[in-house]
């Protein structure tokens, strides 16, 4: 007969996160899908912008273009992050374990966040290469990392909750998009504003940049807290 010790919530978190990352780095299912999709979206954006006859201020549009790329790519990844949990009842196996079910949310959020960051690390240089290669870089550019980080956390958080809700539905891909985009709109609005300001080098420390970043941080705190609290109900339904 085997003996058991009490497992802390943090231990459960580490075990679940380790499983998600081990599986992903072995199969590269999400990373390769999101990476290729990123490249395709960049090419399509490039072709679309090349076709325009009028002169477009690409720098002013860059924040919006970049976040559109991140949202489309993350939707693809978020769906896949739960597809394998459903396969052969693996998630049910985890639900049978005596653990705080909100830990499943936190570990999945972390895994999705890390994978999105990896994809963004590939997407950012390509984005600059495609759209901003001839543009003079502003000293404020490094400040774009803050909305990038805060926005990615929010997308991973909300997306993880919604992916769990839609996992058992028919047409889950469409449903996730329909729920996700309206729900992350405030976050996107704030992040696009802050990112564009950082790229264009506007008056950084007044109004818009700080307001955008504050809104994004507030959104993350509220949405992740709500998701954490709701997760047991959602995953048990």
């Amino acid at each position: 007969m085997s003996t058991k010790k009490r497992v802390s919530t943090f231990e459960h978190y580490k075990i679940l996160l380790g499983k998600d990352l081990r599986r992903e780095f072995r199969t590269r299912e999400m990373l390769s899908t999101m990476g290729i999709y990123t490249l395709l979206v960049l090419v399509i954006f490039g072709i679309a912008l090349m076709q325009t006859s009028a002169k477009i201020d690409i720098v002013q549009m860059s924040g919006g273009l970049f976040w559109a790329l991140i949202v489309f790519t993350s939707l693809l990844g978020l769906n896949r992050s739960f597809a394998y949990e459903k396969e052969d009842g693996a998630l049910e196996g985890v639900l049978l374990v005596p653990l705080d079910r909100s830990v499943i949310f936190l570990s999945k959020l972390t895994a999705n966040f890390l994978l999105l960051i990896i994809v963004e690390a590939i997407a950012i240089p390509l984005f600059f290469l495609f759209f901003l290669s001839g543009v003079e870089m502003q000293p404020s550019l490094p400040l774009a990392l803050a909305p990038l980080l805060v926005g990615t956390i929010g997308i991973a958080g909300v997306g993880t909750l919604l992916a769990t809700i839609t996992i058992n539905t028919r047409g889950k891909d469409m449903l996730l998009a329909l729920l996700f985009i309206p729900l992350v709109f405030p976050l996107l609005y704030a992040c696009v504003s802050a990112t564009t300001l950082a790229i264009t080098g506007g008056d950084m420390l007044t109004g818009a940049y700080t307001a955008g970043l504050t809104l994004a941080i507030g959104y993350d705190v509220v949405m992740i807290l709500v998701s954490w609290l709701l997760y047991d109900f959602v995953v048990s339904a």
């Binding site: 052969d88 693996a90 049910e92």
Partner: peptide
């Protein structure tokens, strides 16, 4: 902590 479940679904991660 005290129950086990065997189903026609294996409850396993196929890629591990």
């Amino acid at each position: 902590n005290h129950i086990g479940f065997i189903s026609h679904k294996p409850l396993l991660y196929l890629d591990l």
